[in-house]
């Protein structure tokens, strides 16, 4: 057992270290102030690498992500604001570059789609429950209806 576990543990540790390699690179960057560093660290986690599609600039090691990280870093060092950097990226790569897309006509479905599904699901649930209740009530009604005439008939038959 131990013979299997030890190399496995080693592999897991190696993988974890590989994952933090990009974060270590970021730690080597020099900033003038903690605010600047926070701005940079926030932006590279919020901007999407458009080549890799599902990674942030920080996560990706593609050459475009490296270039864009550099661009963000340079502009942060030059004192650019968060808004100007976001505008810079959006004006070149579109809203897709943002992990938190702005609310506008084209993104309405993106923002409210989940709510739509929730409402639809709730509606279906209510309909199904109501139908079940109606069916249960109908079968109750049916069973009493069948019994009543039957006993009536029996009595009627017995009388004469």
């Amino acid at each position: 057992m131990r013979r299997i576990v030890t190399p496995l543990l080693g592999a897991v540790v190696a993988l974890l270290m590989a994952g933090s390699a990009s974060a270590q690179n970021a730690a080597l960057l020099q900033f003038d102030s903690p605010e600047q560093e926070a701005l940079y660290q926030g932006l590279v986690r919020e901007l999407r690498c458009t080549v890799c599609q599902n990674q942030t600039l920080l996560d990706s090691n593609s050459s475009l992500a490296q270039d864009l990280r550099r661009k963000v870093y340079d502009q942060v060092r030059e004192g650019a604001s968060r808004e100007s950097l976001v505008d810079f990226m959006v004006s070149r790569y579109g809203d897709f570059v943002l992990y938190r897309p702005p609310l506008k006509t084209e993104t309405t479905l993106l923002w409210f789609g989940p709510l739509l599904f929730l409402v639809a699901g709730g509606l279906i649930l209510v309909l199904v429950l109501r139908q079940q209740r109606i069916r249960a009530a109908l079968s109750d009604l049916a069973s009493t209806e069948i019994e009543a005439p039957a006993t009536g008939k029996k009595r009627a038959r017995r009388k004469p």
């Binding site: 458009t50 080549v51 050459s63 475009l64 270039d67 864009l68 661009k71 070149r92 790569y93």
Partner: peptide, 13 residues
């Protein structure tokens, strides 16, 4: 060479 013009053009692929 640096890809700087590519960034201006929004090149990603």
């Amino acid at each position: 060479e640096s890809g700087a013009a590519g960034i201006e053009w929004g090149v990603y692929g």
